[in-house]
Amino acid sequence: MSVQSFGQPSVTPSGASASPFAAHLPRILDIVRESGALVMDHWRKPRAIRFKARADLVTETDLAVEAFLKDRLKDVVAGATFLAEESATSREPRGTCWIIDPIDGTTNFAHALPFVGTSVALWHEGRVELGIVNVPALGECFWAVRGGGAFRDGAPLHVSVSEDLEQALVATGFPYTIEENVDTVMARLRKAMLTTRGVRRCGAAAVDLAFVAAGRFDAFYEADLKPWDTAAGWLLVEEAGGRVTGFDGAPYDFANEGILASNGLVHEAMREVLRL
């Protein structure tokens, strides 16, 4: 299996003390990149798809990548457990825990759309310490270590500097429970479309959050996400200088109705957009 090189990771602290887990980053990045090679090997083959729900798919690739990551990461941090999408029995990380989405954007993968990410985060005692979002079909890998900044393929990331919501490009996503919540989803979407430069939907929350960290989107919001959708991207945005909260402005956690991530400058204006 060939692995694409992205250069040496930077873990230089940016103002705060770098995470004690920073020393593990090079090894973790190697493992995640290898999983990206596995994704791309499957990319070139016919997809075997089954349905968890009408719009909720799982492929053999989801299962293979999750198994690969769990096998390779199990010895990296002593005592760490796993909260991974395809095998999770709860939505609550505890202690030291790997939070993994092997294929974020499974529907995109099934249709050969390149917005497909592998999200790996290390949770420790109530917060994310390290996060990686690898987007192999685009050849991009994003990572962050708490206190050490955020990077794309070794280059530092920073959120955008847009201050005016009318000039902001906003991303969103739709929950699998869309039939139950379509009126609420569409009410928020209508307000976002009328008050911003535009709204985009990539179909992979981890990728959307990485793009906020990279300054490509000025904000991202979505309801009813799971820890494996947001954990790594949450840290990416904050380490890139952005802000992450619930829709109500309260500190984000996995029990929130939804996540609002932004450059910080348009955050309060976006909160008003989301208020119903």
Rank of each mutant, 00 (worst) to 15 (best):
S19I: 12
V244A: 08
R216I: 09
T245L: 12
L69D: 01
A223H: 14
R50V: 03
E125I: 02
T184W: 12
F21W: 13
E34I: 04
T59F: 12
E179C: 10
D71L: 03
F6Y: 07
A192M: 08
F220Y: 15
D56A: 11
R200Q: 05
K74Q: 15
L38S: 00
H124C: 03
G242T: 04
G249D: 13
A171P: 02
Y221E: 14
K45T: 12
F174N: 07
S5H: 15
R201W: 12
G105H: 00
L260C: 07
A255I: 00
V58F: 05
V161S: 13
N256W: 01
A121E: 07
V128Q: 03
M1Y: 14
G139D: 02
L194P: 10
I132Q: 00
A112D: 15
I103M: 10
V159A: 08
G79I: 05
A144Q: 10
I99Y: 01
D71T: 15
A187P: 11
S2I: 12
D224S: 14
E140C: 12
G264L: 03
R72M: 02
L265S: 04
W143G: 02
Q8A: 13
R47Q: 09
S87F: 05
V185T: 07
D208I: 07
R197G: 01
L265D: 06
A240W: 08
K226N: 13
P102G: 01
T106P: 01
T195A: 13
V65S: 10
D218T: 06
T184A: 14
W43P: 02
T196H: 06
L225W: 08
N108P: 05
S10I: 11
G249Y: 08
